[in-house]
Design a protein around this nucleic acid. Sequence first.
DNA 1: GTGGTCTAGACCACA
DNA 2: GTGGTCTAGACCACC
Lengths: 127, 127, 127, 127
Amino acid sequence: MIVNLTDKSEESLQAQLVRQIRTLILYGDLEAGRQLPSIRQLAGEQRVSVVTVQRAYEALEGLGLIHVRRGKGYFVSELSHEDRMTFSRTQLLARLVPIFRQARAEGLEASGLQEAVRIALEVSGRD
Amino acid sequence: MIVNLTDKSEESLQAQLVRQIRTLILYGDLEAGRQLPSIRQLAGEQRVSVVTVQRAYEALEGLGLIHVRRGKGYFVSELSHEDRMTFSRTQLLARLVPIFRQARAEGLEASGLQEAVRIALEVSGRD
Amino acid sequence: MIVNLTDKSEESLQAQLVRQIRTLILYGDLEAGRQLPSIRQLAGEQRVSVVTVQRAYEALEGLGLIHVRRGKGYFVSELSHEDRMTFSRTQLLARLVPIFRQARAEGLEASGLQEAVRIALEVSGRD
Amino acid sequence: MIVNLTDKSEESLQAQLVRQIRTLILYGDLEAGRQLPSIRQLAGEQRVSVVTVQRAYEALEGLGLIHVRRGKGYFVSELSHEDRMTFSRTQLLARLVPIFRQARAEGLEASGLQEAVRIALEVSGRD
DNA sequence: GTGGTCTAGACCACA
DNA sequence: GTGGTCTAGACCACC
């Protein structure tokens, strides 16, 4: 499983793990039912503490994206394509709303907001 | 100057100060050239450590929104309406792009993104 | 013999085996003197390790519900109907007391306790 | 703050902390708004790891019984007497139902259940 | 001072 | 082998 961790980011290692694995699952690179690397294995590979990986896995479990089978390991949960899209859209919405509120509070008009959104959509679509 | 701080938020006091003062300036409630409350005064009013205010002011200075005059205090920098809009839009853009990238990485199509944006714009407009 | 195991429960496989076989015996589905499936057979049927079944049988033996005959296998022990009821009631009592103690320590009055018990009895009786 | 930990119990240290502090709060020994001992202090006093205390505090926060103020510490949340009773009753109910179901599955009649409950209530009320 | 995060070991129950 | 729990250190941002 491919993840890239850096301690130069202001995002914690745990958070980086959660975000990246979340992406792998939602995008479909980790299909439902597949076993995740064991806590110890991933910790070893990524040179992080077991506790860090464990907490990341617990967080993903809390999101309903993975589940644990005692003595077996962690597995990707069953999510329909629709489930995944709904999940992504909900999370996206939760992040956008406060940002738009802030921008509005600073005096940006709807037209300015839309312009910024248009550019951001375009920029994010490249590369 | 009206700010509302709470130590129940997960946003740090410093971050709350920066965000709220930034909003006051960009929205125009604090016009250019006006003096900000002294560090000690604001700290006293808000029951907050001097260091917290100090660092918040430094952050705003780094953003180019305020400047210090030795021995006088902090003042709101000159920004044309256009400057303010540009500033807001730039900051907005910087926050939106990584979010959209993440959503795209999770498989959300342009149509799904736009749908979420449409809803978020509407929701954020109510207040 | 009918048991249902799942590795999605937080109850260990061993504990699930003990609880379910215990129920079969106490309810009378497994009459006294009857031979239990061999360790290997049950392990095979249930896709579970031999060790898991072994330990479950040992636990049931410790409870006095089954006994082993060297070279023959495990058998359901002789228990009169009254014995079974006494056993169930004793086990029930042992589980209820600490729970009630805890609730009392949290300030629940006798009336509140009884109300909760009344509801729990009703809810557990449906299905 | 008085807690008693033992590593002889099969209950984890974390769980013991959660249960005991929960009791102190619900019973009213720790009144609303009061600051809990700092993670480090409690860890030192009780000779447990900081992480153990931290996870216990996080669990209590998840239950809504305490909350954290950054850089200040953990504090007991505001709960009306009624809130506390509701909380206790709900938790109690959640523990009783599966126990009663199990007893019923083993053939205990309503009368037997009630008899056991009666005795348990009495026993738990002594000392 | 506070909590938040992290490390590198360790022991346990369970499979 | 797996996860669950624990320890005893450590560094950081924040107050």
